[in-house]
Amino acid sequence: MFINFYRRICLFVLLWLASLDGLAIETQQLTPGFYPALRVGYAWLDNVFRSEKQEKADTVFQARPMLHWKAGTVVYDLNARYQGNYGVYRVLDEQDYMDHTLSIGFGLHPTEKMALELSDRYKIGHDQPGISGTQVFAPPKPNRWHDNRFRAQFTYGRRIATAQLQLAYEEATRRFQNNQREFSDRNQHTGTATWLYHVLPKTWLVTEFQYQINDFQMNKAFDQDSDQWHVFQGASWEISAVTQGEILLGYLRSTPKDQRFFKPFSGFGARISINWQPRTYSRVTLRAERMPQLGSTASAFFLANRIGLTLQHEPTERIRIQTSAAYEKDDYSFNRFGPERQDRFLRFGLEINYAMLHWLNLGLGYSHDIRNSSLRLSDYAANTISFHVQILPEYARNP
C-alpha cells in the first residue's frame, strides 16, 4: 500500500516538473521557437468500465503535457511536438495509462503554386472503455497499442486562382500489445486525389477520390483484409471570418478479400464540416460523416454514422462556455457469422473555463454518455465531472 502511494506521489511531482500541454496550436501563426503548455486536473467517473452490470466509480488524476518546437523561413517550416496523456486512478489502478505522441512535420513552399508537406506521428495509446469501435465489455486492463502514421501531400495551384490539385499518400500501422488483440494488427495504405475548382469568390467545387488497402497481419482462421474506395463531390467555402465549411457527398464501397466471412458494402457516404462565427465571441461548429471505420473487434470494419454540434460563447473576456452534443450509430452487421450488433451513442457535454491570468485557466466540465446496443447487457450510462488547471500561453488559446 505504501509503495503504491509513493508511486502516485512521485508521478504527480514528475508530471508537474517535466510536462508541458496539450491543446491544438495553429503552427502557421507561430514564430520559430519552443512552446510549452500543461493541463492537469481530476475527474470523477461513475462508470469507469462503461458497463451496465459492472458499474464502478473512481477518481482519476489526469495530466496532458506538451512541448512544441518550430523552425523555418518563408520557403519552409519544420514542426516537432511531444504530447502526453497520463491518468492515475485512485482505486482502479489497472486502468492507469500513460499515452505518448511524438510527431514531426515538414512543409516546403518553393513557389506560390507548389507545396510539399510531410509528416510522421508515432503514438503509444490505449482503447478507452466502451467507445466506438472497441469491445462491448471493457477488459480488466485497457487494450494498448503502438500506432505510426506517415503522410505526404503535394499541392499544385492556388486556391484563389482557377484550380488546385492535391495528391496525398498515407501509411498507417497499428500493433496491439496485450489482451490477445493481435488479430487487429494491421497496415493501412491510403491514396487521395482532390481537385478544387474556383467557381465564386471564396467558393470552390471539390472532387475527391480515395482508395484504401487494409492489410491485417494475423490472418489465421479467416482473412480480414479489405479494399475500400470512395468518390465524393461537393463544395468548400471561406466567407471572411464568419463561416468556413466543406460538404462532400458521394459513393463509397468496401470489398473484403474473404467474402465467406465478411459482407461487402456499397452505398452513400458523406463528410461535412461547418464553422459559423456570427460574433467574435461566439462560434458554432457542426461535424458529420458516414464512413467505414476499423476497430479493435473481430469485424473487418463497421459503418459509422456520426453528427456533432458544439457551441462556444464568451460572455466576458475571462469566461468561455462550451456546450456539445453528439450522436453516433455504428453498424457491425458485415461479419456473416458474428452476432448482430448495432450500437447507438449519445453524448452531452458542458465545460466552463475561467482565465485567472492571460496564461492560466481554470476549468470545470461535465459529460453524460449513453450507449444503446443490440447486444444483451451492453447498454450503459456514464457521467463524468472534471476540474482542471491549464497553463495556456497566448499562442495556444482556442480560436
Rank of each mutant, 00 (worst) to 15 (best):
residue 202 K to T: 06
residue 83 Q to F: 08
residue 338 G to E: 03
residue 7 R to P: 00
residue 218 M to N: 14
residue 78 L to W: 09
residue 348 F to Q: 08
residue 383 N to G: 07
residue 279 R to Q: 13
residue 95 Q to G: 08
residue 128 Q to S: 12
residue 347 R to P: 01
residue 339 P to M: 12
residue 68 H to F: 14
residue 127 D to K: 12
residue 216 F to A: 06
residue 187 N to K: 13
residue 294 L to F: 07
residue 326 A to V: 06
residue 92 L to K: 04
residue 323 T to N: 13
residue 393 P to M: 09
residue 109 H to W: 12
residue 357 L to P: 01
residue 168 A to I: 01
residue 33 G to S: 04
residue 229 W to S: 10
residue 263 K to Y: 13
residue 106 F to E: 05
residue 119 S to Q: 13
residue 128 Q to Y: 03
residue 24 A to N: 06
residue 3 I to F: 05
residue 29 Q to W: 08
residue 266 S to E: 13
residue 59 T to D: 04
residue 197 Y to C: 04
residue 211 Y to C: 03
residue 115 A to W: 01
residue 128 Q to C: 04
residue 294 L to C: 08
residue 307 I to R: 00
residue 188 Q to K: 09
residue 7 R to Q: 11
residue 174 R to K: 14
residue 104 I to P: 02
residue 193 A to Y: 01
residue 336 R to P: 02
residue 38 L to F: 11
residue 238 E to H: 10
residue 14 L to S: 12
residue 206 V to P: 00
residue 14 L to H: 03
residue 43 A to I: 10
residue 12 F to L: 10
residue 161 A to I: 00
residue 345 F to A: 02
residue 221 A to E: 07
residue 173 T to H: 11
residue 72 G to S: 08
residue 117 E to V: 14
residue 8 R to Q: 06
residue 215 D to K: 08
residue 289 E to S: 10
residue 174 R to A: 09
residue 156 Y to M: 09
residue 64 R to N: 15
residue 165 L to A: 10
residue 222 F to D: 03
residue 144 R to Q: 14
residue 185 D to V: 02
residue 217 Q to Y: 05
residue 148 N to G: 09
residue 281 Y to E: 14
residue 161 A to N: 06
residue 260 R to M: 13
residue 282 S to W: 07
residue 295 G to R: 06
residue 239 I to K: 04
residue 376 R to E: 14
residue 304 A to R: 10
residue 9 I to D: 07
residue 362 L to T: 12
residue 262 F to T: 04
residue 355 A to E: 07
residue 206 V to R: 05
residue 252 L to K: 05
residue 263 K to V: 05
residue 213 I to E: 03
residue 126 H to R: 14
residue 318 R to M: 07
residue 290 R to V: 00
residue 380 Y to Q: 05
residue 9 I to L: 15
residue 277 Q to L: 09
residue 53 K to N: 15
residue 287 R to K: 13
residue 386 S to W: 03
residue 278 P to V: 05
residue 85 N to P: 03
residue 332 Y to L: 07
residue 357 L to S: 08
residue 319 I to H: 05
